[in-house]
């Protein structure tokens, strides 16, 4: 499915701000794997997702997704394989465009855009159906500008947009971090529902350890640009937050106490 081999990335190489973000990442995902990723700030979680999405180029290593080598593909080309939801609710949608226009854009992910009409009647019916599933009442506001929606509604919409065309891999980059607990919970349950329903392969970065343990079939922990812990199946199910904390303290020599993961 997804095969990341020996990927490294250094930002601002050769300057005083040099930062080794990824130190040789190897990761192999099976189809329908739902992997949660945890780790402290600067561990390289978001960088890894951005490398897969093509925001940055790899210094070394390769990324293969669905038997296609996407290491050198530009961001917009590999978008056909990927569904993405960002941490910032503003990033995933176009504020000045209508809800249905945003969905129509997402519906054309991976297709050649031509001069035919940007949105058709049949599509609109489909969008209403899909929006009903979110249970946020958005189906009655198809022509409202997305800028009028709350952060939670925008994240839910982005999630729907990312999966409107079934992606080979869904990338969720702390997509509930900017939401209040109640809304975050709602968006997470929508996430779970969509992933199960469509049988998606997904990578989800989170700062909430309980969520990381509860959701998905596999969990990886990152530290200083490396994957330091990788569990799946029964072993993962039986994990406790304390186990993860202990695991983390051993690799980071106690500096973990300051990390915001403790708040989770």
């Amino acid at each position: 499915m997804l095969k990341i081999s020996g990927v490294t990335k250094t930002f601002n190489a050769g300057t005083i701000n040099e930062k080794k973000a990824l130190n040789g990442i190897d990761l192999h995902l099976k189809p329908k794997d739902f992997v949660t990723i945890i780790g402290g700030n600067g561990a390289g979680k978001s960088t890894m997702l951005n490398m897969i999405a093509g925001v940055y180029n790899c210094d070394t290593g390769s990324i293969v997704l669905s038997n296609e080598d996407i290491t050198k593909q530009p961001e917009h080309k590999r978008a056909k394989l990927l569904g993405r939801v960002f941490q910032d609710p503003m990033r995933g949608t176009a504020a000045d465009m209508e809800i249905e226009e945003n969905l129509a854009m997402a519906y054309r992910r991976g297709k050649v855009r031509g001069l035919s009409w940007g949105i058709t009647k049949e599509e609109k019916a489909l969008y209403v159906e899909k929006l009903k599933m979110l249970d946020l009442g958005l189906e009655n506001r198809m022509t409202s500008k997305v800028g009028l929606l709350s952060g939670g509604q925008r994240q839910a919409l982005t999630l729907l947009m990312a999966t409107l065309q079934k992606p080979q891999l869904l990338l969720l980059d702390e997509h509930t971090a900017a939401l209040d607990p109640k809304t975050a919970h709602k968006v997470l349950s929508i996430t779970e529902h969509i992933i199960n329903e469509q049988g998606l392969t997904a990578l989800m970065v989170t700062h909430n350890m309980k969520d990381a343990i509860r959701l998905g079939n596999r969990l990886i922990m990152m530290h200083e640009g490396r994957i330091i812990y990788d569990v799946e199946g029964e072993e993962k199910k039986n994990l406790k937050v304390e186990d993860l904390l202990k695991k983390f303290e051993t690799v980071s020599n106690g500096e973990f106490a300051n990390d915001r993961m403790l708040l989770a």
Binding site: H76, M90, D96
Partner: peptide, 18 residues
């Protein structure tokens, strides 16, 4: 539509494959 969206949110447009 993609052009209008580009003026609005480039990140989204690239993520949606344009």
């Amino acid at each position: 539509s993609a052009l209008r969206a580009t003026g609005n949110n480039e990140y989204m447009v690239r993520a949606l494959g344009a």
